[in-house]
Amino acid sequence: MNRAAFAAAMAGVALLATSCSSEPTYGESVKRCVAAIKSRPDGDKAKPEPCEPLKEDDDTTLIMDKTLGDLGWLDKDGNLDKDALNRNP
């Protein structure tokens, strides 16, 4: 086998190995965390297990987004609705 063929074969093996990983991507972990936060009971302050792989800042941001939405302080696009914020002190 020549060097070019060997390099191509090894690149294929490396690609296959990374695409078959059982670990979720960071983006998949974020989606799982959002679903877990949305489904947890009211008053539950424990960090959901699917959120464990996330950086603390990302986890906090997702929790704040859910909280602001629950309070009605976000518009339909998920942006802070200052009028709603002023109506609900």
Rank of each mutant, 00 (worst) to 15 (best):
P41I: 04
K66F: 14
V34P: 03
S21K: 01
L71I: 05
P50L: 03
L62F: 08
D57S: 14
E49P: 04
I37K: 05
D44P: 08
R32Y: 01
K47W: 05
S22V: 07
C20V: 13
D65Y: 11
D58N: 04
W73R: 09
V34Y: 04
N79E: 12
D57C: 13
C51V: 00
P41C: 00
P24Y: 01
G69D: 12
N79C: 10
C51A: 06
K45I: 10
L80C: 06
R40Y: 06
P41E: 13
G72S: 06
D58A: 10
L74W: 02
T60N: 12
D81Q: 02
P48I: 05
T61G: 07
P53E: 11
E56K: 15
K47V: 06
V30Q: 02
S22A: 00
A35R: 11
D77W: 07
V34H: 07
D42V: 05
P53F: 11
L74R: 06
R40C: 01
E52N: 05
A36E: 04
T60W: 11
K31V: 04
P50K: 03
D77V: 01
G78E: 07
S22G: 15
L74I: 03
K66I: 03
L74S: 00
K38R: 15
E52Y: 09
P50D: 10
L80S: 01
G78T: 11
I37P: 10
E23H: 09
I37R: 05
D59P: 00
